[in-house]
């Protein structure tokens, strides 16, 4: 296609959008709503996932040893733990360290109160390994393995926490995927509808073009420009809105809910948009392009 033809078709596509103002606006609005909701769901999903990951890191499995366990046995248990792929990190906590930590929590650093136990560590049999997992869903198999090891007296773990986190994370993922898929289908349908209206308004023009020797690509080009432009505008607007909104929420939470911001760490805006910008643009432009192309295919047989 010549450069002048390209610029003519581009111009015609923009003129078409202007001529079909109401339908174009409706399409842009729908696309904006779809991509905006997609962004909202993605942001919630990605933040929740990050929170789950943080929480998962805090879920520890504790391995306590038999009272008569030898140092070699404890070391062998440590080696067995380190060999497991689901283990993110593990640490040995001696009976003395356990008592120190307990004193800090329970006596709040009150040395006098704790002095009663000065020569008699009440947690003498509490040396342990604390294990942190990189995937909580693997907890059950690890616990079963640990319980069978020689010298292991008890394995402490929180079954409820692990299962709830894994299930909830999965549920959020499924809902997000479902909603996003529905939104994409709705956006594609609406763009196709706008192009259909545009075609019915310009049926005569298309027929004349075909009768005086226009190639299909020439007839198609302005409609494709129209679809792609609607898709592009419909994805840039929600991206800007989401960017502003996300930053505002981050600032607001940081200012108003100081305690909350210590508890949860939000995924940085840069990281969220690193994914959202390309995905939204590809979706917007892609839906616009495919929507217009497939709709036109049915109308080019003159």
């Amino acid at each position: 296609m010549r450069l002048s033809t390209l610029s003519y078709n581009f111009h015609q596509g923009i003129v078409n959008i202007w001529k079909n103002k109401m339908f174009s606006l409706a399409s842009i609005a729908t696309m904006t709503a779809c991509i905006f909701l997609l962004g909202v769901f993605y942001s919630i999903g990605v933040n929740f996932e990050s929170m789950v990951r943080n929480a998962e890191e805090g879920v520890a499995v504790t391995v306590l040893f038999n009272a008569d366990a030898s140092e070699e046995q404890i070391q062998a248990i440590g080696e067995a733990i380190s060999a497991r792929s689901e283990v993110a990190k593990y640490e040995f906590i001696s009976a003395e360290e356990a008592w120190e930590s307990y004193k800090m929590d329970y006596f709040n650093g009150d040395e006098e109160a704790a002095a009663v136990f000065a020569d008699d560590n009440p947690l003498a049999d509490s040396a342990s390994y604390s294990i942190y997992l990189n995937d909580v869903s693997m907890q059950d198999s690890l616990v079963a393995y640990l319980e069978k090891l020689d010298g292991v007296r008890e394995v402490h773990y929180s079954d409820v926490a692990a299962n709830t986190l894994t299930d909830f994370n999965r549920l959020i993922k499924y809902i997000s995927f479902g909603v996003i898929a529905i939104l994409i289908a709705v956006a594609a349908f609406l763009i196709s509808n706008t192009i259909t209206v545009g075609i019915s308004v310009r049926k005569e023009e298309i027929a004349i073009m075909k009768l005086i020797g226009a190639k299909d690509s020439f007839v198609r080009a302005p409609f494709v420009v129209e679809g792609v432009t609607i898709g592009l505008i419909g994805s840039v607007i929600p991206l800007i809105l989401l960017f502003i909104l996300y930053q505002r929420i981050l600032t607001y939470v940081a200012e108003k809910f100081d305690a909350l911001s210590n508890l949860f760490s939000f995924v940085p805006v840069k990281e969220v948009f690193h994914f959202l910008i390309p995905v939204s643009l590809i979706l917007g432009v892609g839906i616009g392009f495919l929507g217009s192309r497939f709709t036109l295919k049915r109308h080019l047989k003159v």
Binding site: E205, A207, I208, K210, I212, G213, A214, D216
Partner: peptide
């Protein structure tokens, strides 16, 4: 399209844009 470029056509109802 190439064939039709060699055949001009005029209609009763003009068919102008």
């Amino acid at each position: 399209p190439r064939y039709r470029r060699n055949v001009g056509v005029v209609f009763q109802n003009f068919r102008l844009l």
